[in-house]
Design a protein around this nucleic acid. Structure first.
Lengths: 231, 231
DNA sequence: CCAAAAGTGTTGCTCTTACACCCATGC
DNA sequence: GCATGGGTGTAAGAGCAACACTTTTGG
């Protein structure tokens, strides 16, 4: 078969990206949900999404769609997988690539996102979403849990400076189970990947909790010598 | 924006599936590689691939492509992820969904696959592949290792009846490191998910090794009570 | 001075790892 | 009878989980 016919005879498809955006605020793991603007199902709750353009990498499409629909930029983002059932989108046959992202809510413009019709909802507040978006969300949460166990993803969700109680609280949210505070401290500090600062966060107690910073250089150096992060 | 223009104005893309097929034979983990039939790069080594058709789910496309190009059917298959860089395919802009699959080489028709121009190559024999197929393969191997650690995937690669030395050999191949035979036996048998048969495999020793069968019913039952497989 | 959250060590137990010899049989 | 791979148990050490009291300070 000639080059022309091999490629030219193949069918073409709409390809979308949908973003599962995780944030952490007020001690809760949250998700960014928008209300859909177009029919069918205009007004229904949805993940942030959009179409992949000509000559645009799918990774770039995910970044662009997130920026255009919420104003959010410069965040951790990774592909989850493709969702390709023939009837998954009620409007047309669309193959969707799901991306999950982690953002520091405090460092982004909440107002801007809200102006775009986006809401931060905690895990237990998530409504029925359109199409297979609830399934995407379930899969993303599973991936987040899998990956956060062996990779320092958590720090993407916290402000640059954070306390150990805050960090523990984050992992308790991710895994939805209590973690022993002494064992947690021991484990984290033993890794020697945090820099202890001369500052305290007094927002949650009178005594105040020491602030730390994730030291990515140290982490990368350790990783090259076989070290594996584990929560 | 109206329904019509929202979907109709979006660009359409060629969407392919590419399959990373793992097998296990002669004590080696192997991969199914074909020689590409079309230009550009006709004759070069490649994964098995093809285009997603109209109204065809992507999962179905992967199964169909594998069957059509190699005659192989009814195997374990799971999506890896999408590869969507704009210039990844030299012939046209193609978004590719990679699927990895596990097959029992002994139960499939080797001849049929060979007639389709497919070769089983062991990990160390893999040549330069077209486009980003080497990257797909690396990612698939990583996924296989991740998943095989906590899920009973290995049995998909072995014949229905297998010996413990065979099983250990398989995991040694997957992880490319030696496993202590006493500890391995202990761990596997302690899970109580294998059925010991009254048969021996004498093909590799004079004494003969007992044959076992994976008991999926038992495994499923245990899993429902919180049991987690781990190698 | 008291309420509320931060910070701190020890112990038992489980799991993992390392390791060497006998067994069965075909030739 | 001997070479070859199959099969078996134990002990030491590492890692994990459970657990309660003291410290700090704003109000």
């Amino acid at each position: 078969m000639s080059l022309a016919s091999f490629y030219a005879n193949a069918p073409r498809h709409l390809v979308a990206v949908d973003c599962i955006i995780f944030g952490f605020e007020d001690g809760k793991l949250k998700l960014l949900i928008i209300q859909r603007k177009v029919d069918p199902l205009a007004g229904a709750f949805s993940l942030v999404g959009g179409f992949v353009q000509e000559n645009e990498s799918t990774d770039h499409a995910a970044i662009r769609v997130l920026r255009q629909t919420t104003g959010i930029r410069d965040i951790f983002m990774d592909q989850l997988r493709a969702y390709g059932d023939a009837g998954r989108d009620a409007g047309a046959r669309v193959i969707s690539l799901a991306y999950y992202a982690l953002i520091r809510i405090s460092e982004h413009d909440k107002l801007l996102a809200q102006q775009h019709g986006a809401h931060w909802l905690s895990l237990h507040q998530i409504p029925e979403l359109i199409f297979d978006h609830n399934e995407m969300l379930r899969d993303a949460l599973e991936r987040l849990r899998d990956r956060a166990k062996f990779h320092p993803l958590g720090f993407e969700l916290l402000p640059e400076k954070f306390s150990l109680p805050q960090l523990r609280n984050l992992y308790e949210e991710i895994y939805q189970r209590p973690l022993d505070k002494r064992n947690f401290r021991k484990k984290i500090l033993a890794m020697d990947i945090l820099e202890k600062l001369d500052e305290k966060d007094k927002s949650t107690s009178k005594k105040g909790a020491h602030l730390y910073r994730f030291d990515r250089k140290k982490y990368d150096a350790l990783t090259q010598h076989g070290f594996v992060f584990e929560i």
